[in-house]
Nucleic acid binder design. Structure first.
Lengths: 336, 336
DNA sequence: TGGTACGATGTAAACGATTACATCCAGCGG
DNA sequence: CCGCTGGATGTAATCGTTTACATCGTACCA
């Protein structure tokens, strides 16, 4: 495998000139440049990125921590991240944490080991936020950005939508259809994002003069099976709600199925609203009413923010809030 | 940031001893080892992976090329790969090619640049197989493994299921239910895997004394929208088939919706069978009959194969065929 | 006791680029 | 004709490890 010395010898110049030519420095004479490029082509030289990264102390790689790669909500965000990364000569290292703290730590270690320049977290945990460095923005932290989720205590750079407002809108939509007994299937209790959605739900209900009864709020795990299970629990009660608002589309689709299995005629006997607008939402039966999150955009902006941080060397406490949109389809209809 | 010299100084030994201690070489006296570890802890030393990779000329990173990260079929395979990788101290670099040759090449270049030790391809293209190096296993190729798809001309290490047989079984299932007019919605024409599935379909039909008419075979793009569109085309014909076999679940779910929109009572008036058994299949309405592919296992075995190749430094032309399974749910019933 | 063998440790040369600094040369003004 | 300037190029240090090889004791055997 040819290295830079071989090229230099072949072109009759020094390695410095080759290096300069290759990263487009303007201080190389045109004739020399041509000779170098010819030599490069002649011996099929390719820069050894390992050596360059080592010398420059950067990897041009960003670690993306995702709680569950199999969740289509995340994969679309990843695509956005990836696109921007590629355009700027960056690569993404994927870390599927599976909501597991040990895996998170294992991955976060890559940054201290210099295998990645920064971290984009799609989940709710900041792996290096522990003990006393919690609740403030530690200057020792590596460059990082949170997407979707955020940590209430830490003013970290974040890209997300206004979850409170989005949940309020979804709930108002159901209220507007005449529903009074509405249940909420949340994600994990610990998730700040879910708390926001619950807050938005509660706010809308209260504003309509309704009380949110304890048993009408259930906690799932964002999965199809989780939604199915929580819906079954709701159906097992004395009275069943006339509408259910789910914290994500997968749970909504799970709930849909549970309701149908229980013999309910959908959407007539039960309205369901999801959250995220994943591709499957439109193809569910009935097609799911949901809140659309600009998923690809979330990825794009997160990566742009990361690039900014890497360039300027400082962590802005910036929070970017993107617009959501209520998408009304077939699953929400007037209350019986 | 402390480096190995600092540790050496602190422990009163040479850098070589520190290095040896850290990678667990047996030729370090217990007392020395203890002193070194203490020094490491004292100054919070972490090995600079960049320097190590550079010196050792390996990255412990594998590039995974996936045609579409947003497709849940792939993400589950990725999870399998990732798990094995992590267990063996490897990381995965994700490349979403979006069926785009240029992106594929851009990513494959990472291997020549030494940013990755090998490639696992989930798509059908081998990015470095061009021109004369096509149709044979080029010894110059970097370590690579194909998962799911494969290239007919190249005896590359591959992990997949027996697509012909699986398609035959799915078709026989429909034939067994009394269907005679069965359509097939394939993936892209160029995909060898789809050709296999079509071959299996044709084989089963022929064995049953039926001819596969040209207009009963349609080519989609593996997406929900693609399945929807192809189904509409089928419904637009003079007579509609009584059953449809789709080359993946997403297209099947798209087809499901198109049929329902056309006013067909499902599954009574139209049976549908998918392929892959993604999580959503079970939650579709009606729940989808499909061929289960051991997705996580495909990932696991692919990565194991990759590790083997990296260890032994040679490319076995091995092909691993994993077992599939017909999962009968609600979407396939007796012909009207 | 001398030589040998072996285990533990140290020394220093890689790895392949980038880049600060030195050098060289041509052109130009005084 | 001299010295200065500035653009083009070369020289060599540097990044932080790993690892081949050298060295140094010590124990053991003849």
């Amino acid at each position: 495998m040819a290295n830079i010395k071989d090229v230099a010898r072949l072109a009759g110049v020094s390695v410095a000139t080759v290096s300069r030519t290759l990263d487009g420095s303007p201080k190389v004479a045109a004739a020399t440049r041509a000779r170098v490029l010819e030599a490069v082509a002649a011996c099929g030289y390719v820069t050894n990125a390992l050596a360059r990264n080592f010398r420059q102390r950067r990897t041009h790689t960003v670690l993306v921590l995702v709680p569950d790669i199999a969740n289509p909500f995340f994969s679309r965000i990843i695509r956005g991240i990836e696109r921007v990364a590629l355009e700027h000569g960056y690569r993404i290292l994927l870390g599927d944490t599976q909501y597991n703290a040990e895996r998170e730590r294992a991955y976060a270690a890559l940054v201290t080991q210099r295998q990645a320049d920064g971290i984009i977290c799609l989940g709710m945990n900041i792996p290096f936020a522990t003990g006393r460095s919690r609740s403030r923005l530690d200057p020792d932290w590596p460059p990082f950005v949170m997407a979707c989720e955020y940590d209430g205590e830490i003013p970290a750079p974040t890209v997300c939508i206004d979850n409170v407002r989005a949940a309020t809108e979804a709930t108002r939509h159901l209220l507007g259809l005449g529903h009074r007994d509405i249940a909420f299937i949340s994600g994990p209790r610990a998730s700040p994002l879910c708390r926001d959605r619950l807050a938005g739900f509660t706010e809308a209900m209260t504003a309509a003069g309704l009380r949110v009864r304890r048993e009408r709020v259930r906690y799932g795990d964002f999965s199809l099976a989780g939604g199915h299970q929580q819906m079954r629990a709701l159906l097992g009660g004395a009275r069943t709600p006339s509408a259910v608002f789910c914290a994500n589309d997968e749970m909504a689709i799970g709930a849909l199925r549970a309701a149908r299995q229980a013999g309910l005629a959908l959407p007539r006997e039960l309205s369901i609203v999801g959250f995220d607008d994943i591709a499957f939402a439109e193809f569910a039966t009935p097609a799911l009413t949901t809140i659309r999150q600009p998923r690809e955009q979330i990825g794009v902006r997160s990566m742009q923010l990361m690039l900014e941080i890497l360039r300027d060397g400082q962590q802005p406490g910036r929070r970017i809030v993107l617009a959501h949109e209520l998408v009304v389809r077939e699953s929400s209809v007037a209350a019986p």
